[in-house]
Amino acid sequence: MNKSFPSLRTLGLAAALAVGGIAFVGCTTTPAGSEASGPSARNAMDQNVDATLARLYSTVPGSRELVQRAAGTLVFPSVVGGAFVVGAEYGKGALREGGRTSGYYSTTAGSVGLQAGGQSKSVVYVFNTPEALQKFKSSKGWTAGADATVAAGKIGANGSVDTQTYQQAVTSFVLTNVGLEAGAAVGAAKITQISM
């Protein structure tokens, strides 16, 4: 037997790996170029944050005033989740202070339970006090619920943000394709500062 030629088993394994690799690449849900960084990525993110805030203002009466009075607002325009029994969510966003972006962040969360499918939502965290914002900014990885209690933004009987929402240190709003997800909790989302 000539040792200079690879065995059929080796060729078969190499072919299977090549086909599997191509199939795996074809199954990715991350669009090409979505991991871009630099000025164009920051500009795109800032535009998405502006659009998300505009949507919040039109969906939740009184939210513009809440954000304007806040020490800071962290906006994730698109948090994408996928699940089949075990779920995961991921998104990127920006922190606004005084109407200007002061940093970029990622959010990740996992869950276990009877669930299926995927979804996309926008998540907005409003830091109502300077102390809550400072604690968030000084952390090396902030987890909602563990590092701070995050109250779901509530709408009062008059259809506007209620007074209890203003009194919470950190409030969150979750927007889906159909509007505000009333009373939605953000769970144990881990938030980390990133470079863009």
Rank of each mutant, 00 (worst) to 15 (best):
residue 113 G to Q: 10
residue 145 G to D: 07
residue 67 V to I: 05
residue 110 G to M: 07
residue 46 D to Q: 02
residue 177 N to E: 12
residue 23 A to C: 03
residue 4 S to H: 10
residue 91 G to P: 04
residue 164 Q to C: 03
residue 21 G to E: 05
residue 177 N to I: 03
residue 66 L to K: 00
residue 101 T to V: 08
residue 167 Q to A: 07
residue 44 A to H: 07
residue 178 V to G: 14
residue 188 A to M: 12
residue 12 G to Y: 02
residue 12 G to V: 06
residue 11 L to F: 03
residue 135 K to N: 13
residue 140 K to H: 14
residue 38 G to E: 13
residue 168 Q to F: 03
residue 158 N to H: 01
residue 185 A to K: 10
residue 66 L to Q: 04
residue 118 G to Y: 08
residue 132 A to P: 11
residue 129 T to H: 04
residue 66 L to I: 06
residue 151 A to N: 14
residue 142 W to N: 00
residue 53 L to Q: 08
residue 110 G to S: 05
residue 129 T to Q: 08
residue 145 G to W: 10
residue 168 Q to T: 03
residue 102 S to Y: 08
residue 21 G to W: 00
residue 59 T to K: 10
residue 28 T to V: 12
residue 99 G to A: 09
residue 65 E to G: 01
residue 71 A to W: 01
residue 45 M to K: 01
residue 134 Q to H: 11
residue 31 P to V: 10
residue 24 F to L: 15
residue 77 P to R: 05
residue 57 Y to L: 06
residue 161 V to A: 03
residue 155 I to G: 05
residue 19 V to S: 08
residue 136 F to R: 02
residue 174 V to R: 03
residue 57 Y to V: 09
residue 3 K to S: 15
residue 5 F to A: 07
residue 86 V to Y: 13
residue 153 G to N: 07
residue 103 G to P: 01
residue 132 A to L: 11
residue 120 S to T: 14
residue 88 A to P: 09
residue 37 S to Y: 08
